[in-house]
Each structure stands twice: as C-alpha cells, then as structure tokens.
Amino acid sequence: MKIGALSRLAVLILLGVFLARPDWFGWLFTPLTRNGQAAIYTQNSLLNLTLNHLAIVAAATLAGSIVAIGLAVLVTRPAGREFLPLSRTLANAGQTFPPVAVLALAVPVLGFGAAPTLLALFLYGLLPIFENALAGLASVSPDVQEAARGTGMTDGQRLLRVELPLALPTILAGIRISAIISMGTATIGSTVAASTLGETIIAGLINSNLAFVAQGALVVGALAIIVNTSLFAIERHFSRYRRDQR
C-alpha cells in the first residue's frame, strides 16, 4: 500500500518533469534517432497533447460510465428485466466493432477531429463497465435485499443506499479497465486528426524516428499506470468493509 503510493508518486513526478521540460531528456532519446533527427517531438507541445489525450479518454469514459451504469440499473429493475438480453447484445456489439472501423465509418458523418475518436472510445469502453455493473448489482445477497425491503426502504432508497454502494467496487473496476483500454486506443484517434499522444507515434512512424514513437508510447504507458493504480486505490477504499477480518 505504502510502496504502491510511493511508486505512483514517483511515476507522476517523473512524467510531470518530462512534460514540462522535455528538452532535459533529449540525451535519453538521441540513441534512438538516426542521421541527426530531432530527439524530442516539438511540432506540438507534449504537455498539450497529453492534456488533450486525457480529456478525450476522460470524456469517453465518463459518458460510457453514465450510459453503461444507467443501462445496468435499468435492466436489473423488475420493469426493465426483459431488456437485459437486448442491452447485453448491444454492449457486446460495441466491443466487437474495432475502434478503427468506427473511426472510418464515423468520419464521413462527424468529420475529422476529436468527435469520431470520442465515439469509438465510448462504444469500445461500454462493455466492461456494463458487465461489471451487472455483476456488482447481482452480487448483492438476497438476505441484504430482503433486509433493505424489510426495514422500509423505498425502491430508490434501496438502489442508492444499498445496491449501488455494494456494487461500487465492482463498478469502479469496470471503469478502470475501460479507462485503461481507452488510454491506449485513443492514440489511433490521431489518424483522423484528433489531438492525442498518437500524433507523436504517427510522426515517428512516418519519419522513421523511433525517438518520437518511444516518447508517445512511454507517456501513454505512464498515464495508464497512474490511472490504474489511482482508481485501484479508490476501489480499495470503497471496499474497506470487506477487509480487516479478525
């Protein structure tokens, strides 16, 4: 726990310094260049690319969470139960459709830029959140459900005070998985001119400059690690009642 928090902090500081002063790290990337290529990508600031990248992932994950959790709640109510198979199929379809295909199909409608990327990430990230929310809601024991009804909670109170809090750690795990997948997948958004860290990777591939590719990949990797461990810590916080068994 302590070590986890410390290494998270270390990665965060390292990433911050790199994004603020990438030129300090030129020596590190020079060995990857050939024929005196630039070692650090300067077309756009790495900091801006990172912030845009994060914003797109955050927006897609947030939208995906709202829709997926809402859907999971809906289909686990008595009135919505018949829609369970249908919504499962939809969420599955979102995942089986490759993001690249979504981009290709969305560009003619939405144009170039962030919009098609958002759509692709949103669709791709729905399934893990939806399935985890379903699993979390289903894991609330019948005894506890019965007790919640027996104490006189209304349907809404039961959902907000018992079912969702108990499902929360599992739901958060789904959101974490979805966010991590999106973090990597967002790089392909740059093929349709979205401003993401994919830009440095594509530039590196076009110019055969491994240093650019490495920069993009390392930043994305560091972001994934930070997001993963932070969300994991939050999950643990919300499931603390399960631990500390005597």
Binding site: A147, T151, Y241
Partner: peptide, 13 residues
Amino acid sequence: GYAIQGHGLFPHR
C-alpha cells in the same frame, strides 16, 4: 421490526 435468519446486515455499513 423484521429480523431474519442470517441477519441480513448491510456489509458496507
């Protein structure tokens, strides 16, 4: 008041 076997306590509270 309603008390059941297996108590049904809310585990997160």
